[in-house]
């Protein structure tokens, strides 16, 4: 049954003649007197009724904390004493804080390692899996499994795998008569190991996205290219790859945002060590807030990070609009 209001609203603005039956005519008359205003209000209320539960959740769990964090970022507060307003002091400190700058450096290093690798690896795996292979379903599942595993579990596994004394990685090196490595306990290697571990999980994500995109590309296009004399590489580079451009933009942005927010793997493996070599921005923020009890300054760091993420996203969206690559 159609709701009455739906039918009414469909009829209200009717200036043109409606072939209505004699029974319908009196029903429409009072409706017209109530006017479209009340009717709209009612529809609005119904709408808000539907969205308000979700709205409350979003307001309560996202918007309010975000507003509160902004207020906090203008204060000096240890969580217990009365907060003291300090204006933009916390933001000024962002500029001079060498520990934060080091954390930014570590995060950028990780991003540079992780983002291109995860996009390329995802593309490569998707191309391999996008053909009729024996047991292809098994391979696809195997590739996707690590993505389902929580970062905490991945992290704990890493510490065992790369333990310098008893880990599997060094046992393999020993068997090959190669020098032993300190892995997560060596300041110059730790971030690389973390990037490897997150690739293990995250490449699955880009693989699945690319696989879906590849299956959307009509085979006629590549077939036509091949008939026209392209070799396999040319067909990929000039036909398939341009079709994947929106997905590539999406994956890059998505993985970049994920990379600059790296926290969980660091938390479960190195806790920012050795010698702060893996201290990322978000880990530094967490440490400042919940270990150092500087909630005001940590909120300022969070807002700084938010601003950077926003700029990156806006930049890419604008670029892709201008370049006519519809990624978002």
């Amino acid at each position: 049954m159609r709701p009455r209001s739906w039918r009414r609203s469909a009829l209200t603005p009717s200036a043109h003649a409606q072939p209505a039956g004699p029974a319908a005519a009196p029903a429409r008359t009072p409706e017209r007197r109530r006017g479209p205003r009340k009717d709209r209000a009612r529809r609005a209320l119904t709408g808000w009724g539907f969205v308000s539960p979700a709205m409350l959740v979003v307001l309560g769990l996202s918007i309010l904390p975000a507003v509160w964090a902004f207020v906090l970022s203008l204060q000096d507060w240890n969580g217990f004493s009365t907060p003291v307003g300090v204006g933009a002091d916390n933001y000024r400190r962002l500029v001079t804080d060498t520990d934060l700058h080091a954390a930014v450096g570590h995060t950028l290093f990780y991003t540079v390692l992780f983002v291109p690798a995860s996009v390329l690896l995802g593309l490569g795996l998707a191309l391999l899996l996008n053909r009729s292979l024996f047991l292809v379903g098994v391979y696809r599942t195997a590739i996707f499994l690590p993505f389902v595993a929580s970062a905490a579990a991945t992290g704990i596994l890493t510490t065992y795998l790369f333990n310098p004394q008893f880990g599997l990685a060094n046992t393999v090196l020993r068997a090959l008569h190669l020098p032993q490595q300190a892995w997560l306990e060596d300041p110059s290697q730790a971030m690389v190991v973390i990037a490897l571990m997150s690739l293990w999980g995250q490449a699955a994500f880009t693989t699945v996205i690319y696989l879906a995109a590849l299956q959307d590309i009509p085979t006629e296009l590549t077939e036509a290219a091949r008939i026209d004399g392209c070799n396999r590489w040319q067909a990929f580079w000039h036909v398939t790859f341009p079709q994947l451009a929106p997905v590539t933009v999406f994956c890059t942005v998505w993985q970049t945002i994920g990379a600059i927010q790296l926290f969980d793997l660091v938390y479960t493996t190195t806790r920012g060590g050795p010698l702060n070599a893996t201290e990322t921005i978000v880990y530094y923020l967490w440490q400042t807030a919940f270990k150092g009890l500087e909630f005001g300054y940590a909120s300022a760091v969070a807002y700084g990070l938010f601003a950077v993420t926003l700029v990156i996203t806006l930049g890419v969206v604008l670029y892709s609009r201008r370049a006519k690559v519809q990624a978002f």
Binding site: A44, W48, S52, M55, L56, L59, G60, I63, L64
Partner: peptide, 14 residues
């Protein structure tokens, strides 16, 4: 205005 109303209501509830 409606959004503000909802916000105010939830603030009151909190």
């Amino acid at each position: 205005a409606a959004a503000a109303g909802v916000a105010a209501a939830s603030a009151l509830a909190l």
